[in-house]
Design a protein around this nucleic acid. Structure first.
Lengths: 210, 210
DNA sequence: TAGATTGTTAATCGATTAACAATC
DNA sequence: TAGATTGTTAATCGATTAACAATC
């Protein structure tokens, strides 16, 4: 099933390394030391080296890391060297925003379909993707090799829809509903709870005033 | 300035406690033990008690916690017992989605204004909020006692706009741009990096296939 | 070769869990 | 009072940082 377990703390940092390396590439930097990267990213050089060495030795003593090589390797680790088919359920503003992110497609996330229960939204087109009714969902998932389902629907509908997509064999849910989903252990849920994020911000505001 | 420092790990969990307590209240539960809550939330009872005791003793031996009381107290800790004025910069789908969340207003986050550089969006109305041009931003922030600025704009514009709002005295930024913002130490930035979230999902998909 | 910087082991720090005395 | 469950201290676990030998 897997090798040695990598902590989620490390995983959480990987996309950020990836982003910085991408920016370095764009500005034409060819190599970088853990020390210089640590200054830019405001983390310790030790942490960078430890994190990367979870996946293998990407650097070279006396030289540092080759930016382009490391960028490519992290992409592989993150699985973004391959494309992932996705649908978005809930075609409200948030659903449309996600379907819209050209960015995602650049990184290999391809939004194949958009679904909504609201008949008034059905038929409209977002980035060339037609909004479909919920009754078409199961067939569409099977026919289009859908790997990821983004849920941008109200929390009360989310558990039921999650169950439906899981029953269809989907193993990854990107959950924007303000609720936790109960799924079998082999199904991955990545939560984006915007209201929780805002509350953390609020906490830090109040704290700073004290 | 502040009392003993509370770790961000604890802060990250507080909104989730709050959500569960809200649901318990809705289903008419009056009291709950750390043990029962731990089963529902799938965390240890020890962690719940430790977390809460960072802020004071909210429970009672032999009884547990009063749901409504604890809910209210956590609201106070999170600073959501008071209202916070907010503007959203970037009136694209994501910006509109955030302005739309009736939810936020219920929790005391009041979207007072919506701004965009695109003249075609200026004048349209989202939830009764007119989209304004960027040149009006500074005056609006000062006139409306704005505490939080949500940035739903492309990453290349974000640093410049962040600087402008900070220069206006704003101390809290809810950043959706795919970049880190450099702000003075007294300014709080809460990042929502959707693409990073999606990459973590992708990593976990790839890992589970191994 | 000498200098630089990694990969990796060891030390430290912090967070989580366990245990239990206090007490409602 | 007896039972339940907290608040809190102590033990464990894991993550971060420091140090340095290996090596390019």
């Amino acid at each position: 099933m897997e090798g040695k377990e990598i902590s989620q703390a490390v995983i959480r940092r990987l996309p950020r390394y990836y982003r910085y390396l991408g920016e370095l590439m764009e500005s034409g930097v060819e190599r970088i030391s853990s020390n210089e990267l640590s200054e830019r990213m405001k983390v310790t050089a030790s942490q960078i080296r430890q994190d990367l060495n979870n996946f293998g030795g990407f650097g070279q003593q006396g030289y540092g890391y080759n930016v382009k090589y490391l960028y490519t390797e992290i992409a592989k680790i993150l699985g973004i060297d391959k494309s992932h088919n996705m649908i978005v359920i809930g075609a409200g503003n948030l659903g449309q925003a996600i379907a819209n992110y050209a960015n995602f497609e650049k990184r290999g996330f391809v939004v194949k379909g958009l679904f909504d229960i609201n008949p008034r939204l059905q038929g409209i087109t977002v980035r060339g993707i037609e909004v479909r009714g919920m009754e078409e969902m199961e067939d569409f998932i099977r026919a289009n090799d859908i790997e990821i389902v983004a849920l941008t629907i109200p929390k009360n509908k989310a558990p039921e829809v999650a169950e439906r997509v899981v029953a269809c064999g989907v193993k990854a849910i990107w959950n924007f509903a303000h609720t936790d989903l109960n799924v079998p252990p082999d199904v991955i849920v990545e939560n984006v709870h915007l209201s929780e994020s805002l509350m953390r911000l609020s906490y830090n505001i109040v704290k700073s005033k004290k």
